[in-house]
Structures are given as structure tokens and as C-alpha cells.
């Protein structure tokens, strides 16, 4: 068995350099594909982080249950797809349901927590995670579910070098960019956006100027929940829909809003793409780059470990140089 390991690592070294040297056409395309993959991950992160950063930034409210809203969006998509058999119809219904659920949670639970300290908010929203995760098991069972990729977005398109890229993932990037543009328009060009920006900077002053901050909060909250639900719907055809699927993404979404600057939509957009790219390129290249310096079997051990640390290293570095994140909104304390 030991011999096998040695033999295989011997073989590997003859192959690894081809990746960077001889076959440059393939490796540039490969990097292009990985950049697309990174953008697509970044877009999904952005959809989740946008709501989170608004809720945290505007209301100063820590909502751990935001990842659950992503999960619920995906489950709604599965349920409505089962009823209608049409992806677009399922998406519209799922978005509406995610919005309703978000407003309902705000009405029943969250609005009673705005004036409490962060520990109470964390405990209550963590309770909601446990409750909704179990509820999905009771309703849909523990096994992973999936919905098929819609026909008009299935298949893949060839890129240069014979590599294929799935159309659906390009559609995710497109949809995410459209949402980002819409958000940019709302936040910078409308009265509502102005209030949101003002609320993020100085909520007390906004309230003093006669704006119904409670209603503003509720709107922001419902909209954020819907965006997370949208990310869930988009990911249902490529990821398996299962209980707890939002829990890991929530952690990364927090990294995104911290890197981007809490309360800043622009910051979370840039940070989400940055984190998506760093994570994806790290995972695909870390091991290969290490192989140039150390032997292959050690690289296989260390590479994945480094790759999974990269985004946190990035966050630490950004916090060191810019403690309030890349695009701080300059919140009044």
C-alpha cells in the first residue's frame, strides 16, 4: 500500500506541470471557467448578504435566521414546482411566499427584539433556525430534494479549448447582476432608497424627521428575506435542497458584509464577488500552485486546508487595514 502511494505521487509530477506549461490554451480557459464559477458563487452570496447587510446596517439587528430564509426559498421552489411543473411559476410563487414568511417572522418575532441587546437577538434568531430546520424535516423529510433545471436554461455552451459551461449558471450570473442593478437604482435614485441610506447612517435622526421607521424596517426586512429566498430558488436546480442548507452560507454571508462594510449594498456586492472569486480560485489553484514547491502528496494534504481558510485570511487582512470594511457607511454611533 505504501508502495502504491509512492508510485502514484511519482506519476503525478509528470502530469501536473502540463497544467501550467505545455497546454496553455486549456489552462487559460480553465481559469476563465473558474472565474465564471467564482462570479456565480459571488452572486448567490450577494443575494443573501444584501438583505443581511441592510437588516444589520439599518436596524442594527443581528438576524442569524437569514440563512434559513435561503433554505425556505429553495423548499418553496421545490413545493411549487411539484404543484405547477413550471420553473418560472414556481419561482414567482416561491418569492411571494418567502416575502410573506419574512414579513410574518418580522411581525411575530423580530419586531419585539429591535430594542433588546444583541445576545437576545442571537438567541431568538438561533431558535428560529432550529425551529425551521426541524419544520422542513417534518414537512419534506430529511432526504435531499432537487428540482430539474428548466428546459430553456439546460445544456451547456462550449468555451474556447473545448471546455463546456452550463447555461443555467450563466443565467444565475445574469439574474444576480440584474438584481444588483435594480438595488442600485432603488437605493440611489428613489425616496425609499434615500430613507434606507439615511437609516443606515443615523436611524434616530430619520425617526426624528417623522419617518415611520418601524414600517421602513418591516419593508427592508421583507425585501431582504425575499432576496435570500431568491438565492434559494436559483440554487435549487444545482444544489440539493436539504434541511440546514443555509447554515454554512450564513457564515460566509457574514464574512461578506464585514468585508464589504456593514450596511453598504455596494460594499456587499463587491465583497461577495471578491469572496466568491477568492474561494473558487483558491480551491481550484491552491493545490496545483503548492505542487510547484512541495511534493504532490503533501500538496494534496495542505492545499484543501489552505483553500478553505483563504476567505477568513482575507477578512482578517481587510479588517486590519480597514476595520470598518471596504465601503463603510460611516454609521453614527
Amino acid at each position: 500500500m505504501q508502495d502504491d502511494l509512492v508510485r502514484s505521487s511519482g506519476r503525478r509530477e509528470t502530469i501536473a506541470p502540463a497544467f501550467f506549461g505545455c497546454d496553455r490554451a486549456v489552462s487559460t480557459t480553465l481559469i476563465l471557467v473558474q472565474i465564471l464559477n467564482g462570479l456565480q458563487l459571488g452572486i448567490l452570496l450577494f443575494l443573501i448578504a444584501a438583505g443581511l447587510t441592510l437588516v444589520f446596517g439599518v436596524m442594527g439587528f443581528i438576524n442569524l435566521a437569514h440563512g434559513v430564509q435561503y433554505m425556505v426559498g429553495a423548499y418553496f421552489a421545490v413545493a411549487f414546482y411539484g404543484l405547477t411543473g413550471n420553473f418560472l411559476a414556481a419561482m414567482v410563487l416561491a418569492l411571494a411566499s418567502a416575502l410573506v414568511l419574512g414579513l410574518l417572522l418580522e411581525f411575530l418575532v423580530f419586531r419585539h427584539l429591535y430594542d433588546r441587546d444583541h445576545l437576545d437577538q442571537v438567541l431568538a434568531t438561533f431558535g428560529i433556525i432550529l425551529f425551521l430546520n426541524q419544520a422542513t424535516i417534518v414537512i419534506w423529510g430529511p432526504a435531499p430534494l432537487i428540482i430539474p433545471t428548466p428546459d430553456f436554461l439546460s445544456g451547456s455552451i462550449p468555451l474556447t479549448g473545448g471546455l463546456l459551461y452550463p447555461v443555467y449558471r450563466l443565467a444565475i450570473i445574469g439574474a444576480g447582476l440584474a438584481v444588483a442593478a435594480l438595488l442600485w437604482f432603488i437605493v440611489t435614485r428613489t425616496r425609499l432608497g434615500m430613507l434606507v441610506r439615511a437609516g443606515a447612517t443615523n436611524p434616530d435622526m430619520v425617526s426624528a424627521l417623522g419617518v415611520d421607521v418601524r414600517r421602513l424596517f418591516m419593508l427592508v426586512f421583507g425585501f431582504g428575506a425575499m432576496l435570500a429566498g431568491f438565492a434559494g430558488v436559483l440554487s435549487a436546480p444545482i444544489f440539493s435542497v436539504e434541511p440546514g442548507m443555509g447554515d454554512n452560507l450564513l457564515i460566509v454571508a457574514f464574512v461578506v458584509i464585514i468585508v464589504g462594510g456593514i450596511g453598504s449594498i455596494r460594499g456587499s456586492f463587491i465583497a461577495a464577488l471578491l469572496i466568491g472569486l477568492v474561494d473558487t480560485l483558491g480551491r481550484s489553484l491552491a493545490t496545483d500552485i503548492l505542487k510547484l514547491f512541495i511534493d504532490a502528496s503533501s500538496a494534496n494534504q495542505i492545499g484543501p486546508a489552505i483553500a478553505s481558510m483563504l476567505i477568513y485570511v482575507l477578512m482578517a487582512a481587510i479588517l486590519f487595514f480597514r476595520p470598518t470594511g471596504l465601503f463603510s457607511v460611516g454609521r453614527a454611533t
Binding site: 506519476r11 502530469i15 471546455l163 454554512n248
Partner: peptide, 27 residues
């Protein structure tokens, strides 16, 4: 198995998005 190994990838447990790994397979 005694043939060549194109690549040997270890993903995190519970991995969600295999796009980066799939791109490598494709290449």
C-alpha cells in the same frame, strides 16, 4: 489500479458547489 492519475482532489465534507472541480475534470 496502475494507470495514470489525472488529478486527485479532496473537497471539504458537505461540499456544495462542485463547479471548480468539474472545470478541472473537463480540462
Amino acid at each position: 489500479y496502475t494507470g495514470a492519475i489525472a488529478d486527485e482532489i479532496y473537497t471539504p465534507l458537505g461540499h456544495k458547489d462542485f463547479s471548480a472541480e468539474i472545470a478541472k475534470m473537463s480540462a
